[in-house]
Design a binder for these strands. Structure first.
Length: 882
RNA sequence: GGGUGAUUAGCUCAGUUGGCUAGAGCAUCUCGUUUACACCGAGGGGGUCGGGGGUUCGAGUCCCUCAUCACCCACCA
């Protein structure tokens, strides 16, 4: 016996993974003629270790790619990691602060050196963890967002977009994080509710409301809706004098439709430098903009005596001053509003006007389907026209809504870790600035100009991840050729030619906007192709109590690497897909992982049983020669099961695919076929069953299946992971049906035996070949004394079915069973009533599909026969009792 | 303010285009050690599918409406 009594995953997994990798089983071959299947692995952030969320995406993608290999496709699953600019940069800055220094003290070079060292270490850890989770990725093609090739792609994309006017530099309002000292994009802002004071202030003849009096120093425009009749007497452009925080000012009336007349007094003053909405109003009317708060969050000289104060500290003082002037009309202590936070680090966002690089989403210069479109329009059309399908479909609505609200994308960041912006500046003696966008600065040295200096900023991480499906496929040698254009890079890269567009993108719904939408945006524009044909979105893995796993509750976090040694990777993988539907969140469940550990053990023991039974005749690739009804039946189950599973996987229904595998293996193969085989063994079929079972379960449970495969045939050089999906075997339908009838008889006998507590009894039959041929199987499965053919009549008998067999019982047992029979009789009558009324309904008979009507009729016939049998038995009991 | 999801057995959840008597895992109850597995086997109990209305021959599934919970987006000074 080569297999131990229970499956001990941690004894095998590492070796099995090493075997796969050694065999180059996961290496793609762009030159092969096979159908292509490709997935870009979402690159995890290089911040340390992997979570259950990573385990989930690895599982889902691994199932797809392993199954694609089984179906004979050439598969590329390209792995990689992301430099994760903002989180990593923040992490290193935190380390520096703990050492009592900062990035300016150590300088850019040293900062980058330290960061590289840190991410290098975490990358190695993470890649080891991905292997531990069974990821059958092509590690020979491992990519990193800061690789020279990918960096080249980033620069070329930036330059191309700049040349087309899709990237521009401009002073616009940004989301500024004073803590991290950088801008962030709209999508990185999150909001949290806060209760604060709301002040109503006197502003000339008006009353205005504000929660932020500290921003009001420079307010010199008062805005109202043009149709607001309360203020009809004031004309757009009128001016008036008013007493304000630091003395008298001249204010101007502005009429703008952005104002909601029903909110407060319907009048507000604006602070264009520190509010998105106010900025837009100011832009529309070409108004002055004044900075009040500096980039550290402190008040500027315009605040007079408050200069240099933190905004929150200054607030009380400003209100006191306004009160002294009699300008405070009302204070509401319970005003609830949203404050903006940076989702990374939770710093409060202060809108500022700043010169930044932007992607213009409204400029119609993108060639798509023969038309010049805007980036927004392309984003919409590829999903609307079905060039990309999002699963589950409801996320398409979310996606369109996001596009509707999309503004120009701010892509420059004031941090050091990331792709340096390929823009260069130089000044002449008059202070004139010249800008150049390109990989390297121009080499000319004109008289009177200073040297070219590169823009100090870096790009938003998502700008580079947006290129991931194709930048990873560019041949590094081609990318190293400085003369190669983007078009040439595509043409001369075999991987790009073979694997792009990728087949499917699998990721969490939480990065639909950050990543998925940005990939569509950049990739359609640069390559003229969609990045992928399907998008499958999975949900989040929450803690066992249904709340988010969070660092603030360390006990809520489940680390996959502590789960794997105890239960095995396969159990973890199965626990993460069992009973989970696309896009829906799931709760971590200890019970689920135990169930699946048990399933692995069940699989192991099926193999162990077959191994013990077949011994020397254990073979591979055996053609099944079915003999018994059970043989034919199990071949049918496997064949139907393989089809169903393949259909489910192709439709991304992983939970259902697994459900079929689970019950096929446990309920049908183990509980019926293996048990039946104890009466009559068929080596060829058992060999085939074992092999098929391993193949069916392999995409979901790769380790235990390959372990069994390798352990049973240690000399073989084949790998289960490269074996094809089971082919349908030939079986006889009637024989397969006969076994279904046997199952029914066995189940019913077991039911009666348990119900009545019968230990020994006999099953008699007169004319039932399917029983005659399987008498021993039935006897064993029912644990009856005898299963025997008789020639005479029935005598006293008991059965729940119309099958031509019965349990031979005594009158006492019969009496006990009477009430059960009466219950069944009543239930059957009720059902017959229902069916009769359905068939009596002319509309049903007319309109329902014929096969359903036939089915109903058949059901009715069966039930009527059943009732007849029951009644016959009851009459018999009654007669014998009297 | 706009949107999405959830509401199905004691618990956690599946249920593809509407179609047999609505399923799973866990829990629970009763039996059981039999050529693999107690990480096991056999059998049972448990649901008017959140409420109301509608469409249909037929609704857990489609439409309307209400309720509760969760999340996303926008953001109002």
């Amino acid at each position: 016996m080569k297999l131990s009594k229970t499956y001990e995953p941690n004894q095998y997994e590492e070796n099995i993974y090493a075997l796969w990798e050694r065999s180059e089983a996961f290496v793609a071959d762009p030159n092969s003629k096979k159908e292509k299947f490709s997935i870009s692995m979402p690159p995890p952030n290089e911040t340390g270790t992997l979570s259950l969320g990573h385990a989930l995406f690895i599982t889902l993608q691994d199932i797809m790619v392993r199954h694609a290999r089984q179906q004979g496709k050439d598969v590329l699953w390209l792995p990689g990691t992301d430099h994760a600019a903002l989180p990593v940069n923040a992490l290193i800055e935190k380390q520096l602060a703990e050492e009592g220094t900062d990035k300016h003290a150590i300088g850019r070079e040293e900062f980058l050196r330290r960061t590289r060292e840190f991410v290098g270490n975490s990358r190695d850890t993470m890649i080891g963890q991905m292997r531990a989770m069974g990821a059958s990725a092509d590690w020979t093609r491992l990519r990193y967002t800061l690789d020279p090739t990918l960096n080249r792609c980033v620069n070329e994309t930036f330059i191309k977009m700049h040349n087309d006017g899709l990237i521009y530099r401009g002073a616009r309002i940004v989301n500024w994080d004073p803590n991290l000292q950088t801008t962030i994009s709209d999508d990185e802002v999150e909001y949290t509710e806060e209760t604060t004071k709301f002040y109503t202030l006197k502003y000339g003849p008006f009353e205005i409301g504000t929660a932020r009096p500290e921003t009001k120093f420079g307010d010199k425009y008062v805005v109202m809706h043009p149709d607001d009749e309360r203020y009809a007497q004031y004309k757009h452009g009128d001016t008036f004098e008013a007493e304000w925080i630091n003395g008298p000012i001249t204010a101007t009336i502005i009429k703008d439709e952005a104002i909601d007349p029903s909110f407060g007094t319907g009048v507000m003053t604006i602070t264009p430098w520190h509010s998105h909405v106010d900025f837009e109003i100011a832009e529309r009317h070409n108004l002055d903009k004044t900075q009040i708060i500096d980039f550290d969050g402190k008040l500027l000289p315009i605040a007079a005596e408050f200069e240099g104060s933190n905004i929150s500290e200054a607030r009380e003082g400003i209100i006191k001053k306004l009160e002294a002037k009699g300008l405070v009309i009302k204070v509401d202590d319970n005003y609830v509003h949203n404050i903006a936070l940076n989702e990374r680090g939770k710093g409060v966002i202060e809108p500022q006007i700043k010169m930044q690089w932007w992607v213009d989403v409204n400029k119609p210069v993108v060639e798509w389907n023969g038309k010049k479109q805007t980036l927004k329009e392309v984003l919409q059309s590829v999903v609307r026209d079905g060039e990309i399908d999002i699963i589950p479909q409801r996320f398409e609505k979310t996606y369109f809504h996001w596009i509707d609200n999309l503004r120009d994308w701010c892509i420059s960041r004031q941090i050091w870790w990331g792709h340096r912006i390929p823009a260069w500046y130089r000044t002449d003696t008059n202070g004139t600035v010249e800008t150049y966008v390109g990989d390297t600065p121009p080499t000319d040295t004109s008289e009177g100009w200073n040297e070219w200096q590169q823009d100090p900023d870096t790009l938003d991480t998502w700008f580079s991840s947006a290129l991931w499906t194709w930048s990873t496929l560019i041949d590094p040698e081609v990318a190293a050729d400085p003369n190669a254009t983007l078009e040439e890079m595509f043409k001369r890269s075999p991987d790009f030619q073979a694997y792009h567009p990728t087949t499917v993108l699998e990721t969490g719904w939480d990065i639909l906007f950050f990543w998925v939408a940005r990939m569509i945006l950049s990739t359609t524009y640069v390559t003229g192709q969609v990045p992928f044909k399907d998008v499958y979105l999975h949900g989040m893995v929450r803690a066992e109590d249904g709340k988010k796993m969070s660092k603030s509750r360390p006990e809520s976090i489940v680390d996959p690497l502590t789960v794997i040694p105890e239960y095995g990777t396969d159990a973890l993988r199965m626990a993460l897909i069992m009973g989970v539907s696309p896009g829906n969140d799931q709760n971590w469940s200890k019970a689920k992982i135990e169930t699946n550990r048990n399933f692995c053990n069940k699989l192991w023991n099926i193999a162990r049983y077959i191994e013990g039974t077949l011994d020397d005749s254990l073979e591979r690739g055996v053609k099944p020669e079915p003999v018994s009804a059970a043989d034919h039946w199990v071949l049918k189950q496997l064949s139907d099961g393989a089809d169903t599973v393949a259909t489910h996987i192709a439709a991304y229904r992983f939970s259902e695919a697994y459900d079929v595998v689970y019950h096929l293996i446990w309920d049908e193969v183990a509980d019926w076929y293996v048990e039946a085989s104890k009466s009559a063994q068929n080596a060829s079929v058992m060999n085939y069953v074992l092999e098929s079972v391993l193949k069916l379960a392999h995409p979901i449970a790769p380790f235990v299946t390959e372990t069994i495969w390798q352990t049973l045939h240690p000399d073989s050089d084949t790998l289960l992971t490269l074996a094809p999906w089971p082919q349908a075997a030939k079986y006889d339908t009637e024989q397969a049906e006969a076994f279904e009838k046997i199952k029914t008889v066995v189940s019913e006998v077991r039911q009666i035996k348990t119900l009545l507590g019968i230990t020994g009894a006999s099953l008699f039959f007169t004319d039932a070949p399917f029983i005659e041929n399987n008498a021993e199987i039935i006897r064993k499965l029912t644990r009856l004394d005898t299963v025997r053919q008789v020639t005479d009549g029935k005598g006293l008998y008991l059965t729940q079915t119309t099958e031509s067999c019965w349990l031979d019982i005594d009158i006492e047992t019969a009496r006990e069973f009477t009430s059960k029979l009466e219950e069944k009789q009543a239930a059957a009558h009720k059902q017959i009533g229902l069916l009769n009324s359905r068939l009596g309904n002319a509309a049903y008979v007319d309109k329902a599909p014929k096969h359903l009507v036939d089915q109903t009729k058949q059901l009715l016939t069966d039930l009527q026969a059943e009732v007849a049998t029951i009644e016959e038995q009851l009459a018999q009991f009654k007669e014998l009792s009297s």
